[in-house]
């Protein structure tokens, strides 16, 4: 008797899941992805854990970046600078204020980052397309120059090392032990960020942003405060970059200015397009592929830029939907 009831329950649940709206399904997929990554962690060894964690961190800045590009039509060439704000705030706070708690450092980075991006966004939301891209580029370069030239504080191109931090006040004996737990921390933040972004883009606000992208004048004529909404989208997008940057330091153990030059900004653009800028999962897929490419391509050839540029050109001409777009079209054909 009990057996039959259980089977029926299970069946009902499965049915409910397939009938769920796309939005709820999305959250389910994200959670599933997280669970899988959590489970495999002990089995894949420190090297691969590092790569996965790196991919997750870059996914966060990618998602933020794509909020502006895919959903708003704004290309930012300066996200590396914002990433740098998060990264260096964490580094400098750990060095000069002797803080070792991961939670506190991340919170501080977010707080400092917010102050800056609230001001920056006010100006940036006035700009469109090219002017926006250039404005962000100049900002990114100014940050880069600051980290480089203020070498008294930031260590310049010698870089800054990130000490062994504590998570939840637990001290770790070695870097490897720290990284083992840090992986889960990064995964948690990734999940929160991704779910939030998913809800955002499927919300009325997200839909309105799309309308702004399509025709911002018409959007005004249905009563949308375009500039205000662009401002909000900007803040969220850059906030993701700040979080991502802050997470990067402890993973790498070492930070330096070249990480946040316009080259990195370009790489963010690259991976988003590679994954597919019109799809939510695009930046995530792109980040992981980018991470793997970045690890392996240099072993084959030193002409990484050429590969990046050439693949990007091919993507634009043949697969403007990116990899995710290509996969979707394959599914539709069935």
């Amino acid at each position: 008797m009990v057996y039959v009831v259980d089977m029926k329950e299970g069946y009902n649940i499965m049915k409910r899941i397939t009938l769920m709206e796309k939005e709820r399904k999305g959250i389910l997929y994200i959670v599933l992805f997280t669970i899988i990554l959590a489970i495999i962690h002990p089995f894949i060894g420190p090297y691969w854990s590092f790569i996965v964690a790196y991919g997750l961190i870059i996914s966060i800045v990618g998602l933020g970046f794509n909020l502006l590009l895919g959903y708003n039509g704004l290309l930012s060439f300066g996200h590396a600078g914002i990433f740098g704000i998060g990264m260096y705030t964490l580094g400098l706070c750990s060095k000069y204020f002797n803080i070792r708690s991961l939670e506190i450092l991340i919170s501080l980075s977010i707080a400092v980052g917010l102050i800056i991006i609230i001001g920056l966004g006010y100006v940036a939301s006035k700009l469109i397309i090219v002017y926006f891209a250039l404005f962000m580029l100049s900002f990114g370069q100014i940050i880069f120059a600051l980290t480089y030239k203020l070498y008294g504080i930031t260590g310049g191109s010698d870089g800054l090392s990130i000490p062994l931090l504590t998570i939840l006040n637990i001290n770790f004996n070695s870097r490897i032990d720290f990284l083992y737990c840090y992986y889960y921390f990064v995964l948690l933040i990734f999940t929160i960020c991704t779910i939030f972004m998913w809800i955002l883009v499927n919300s009325p606000f997200g839909k309105t942003l799309q309308a702004i992208k399509v025709d911002d004048i018409r959007a005004t004529y249905i009563g949308v405060p375009v500039r205000k909404y662009r401002y909000i989208a900007f803040i969220i997008s850059t906030l993701y970059a700040v979080i991502s940057g802050a997470l990067y330091g402890p993973l790498n153990g070492f930070i330096y200015p070249e990480l946040i030059s316009h080259v990195f900004s370009g790489e963010i653009v690259y991976l988003t397009l590679l994954g597919g800028m019109n799809y939510f999962a695009g930046p995530i897929v792109g980040s992981f592929i980018y991470t793997i490419l970045k690890v392996y391509i240099p072993t084959i050839t030193e002409y990484w830029q050429f590969i990046m540029g050439a693949t990007l050109i091919i993507m634009i001409l043949l697969f403007p939907g990116g990899i995710v777009g290509w996969i979707y079209s394959k599914f539709k054909k069935r």
């Binding site: 590009l69 290309l75 090219v130 370009g266 002409y303 050429f306 540029g309 990007l312 634009i316």
Partner: peptide, 26 residues
């Protein structure tokens, strides 16, 4: 890329610069 939205042309010329620079490097 004329027909594609503006972002694509920025991206295309950007990629072109990467390619040209590495060709020069080569």
């Amino acid at each position: 890329v004329y027909k594609l939205p503006d972002e694509y042309q920025l991206l295309l010329t950007f990629s072109l610069s990467l390619v040209i620079l590495d060709i020069i490097r080569y």
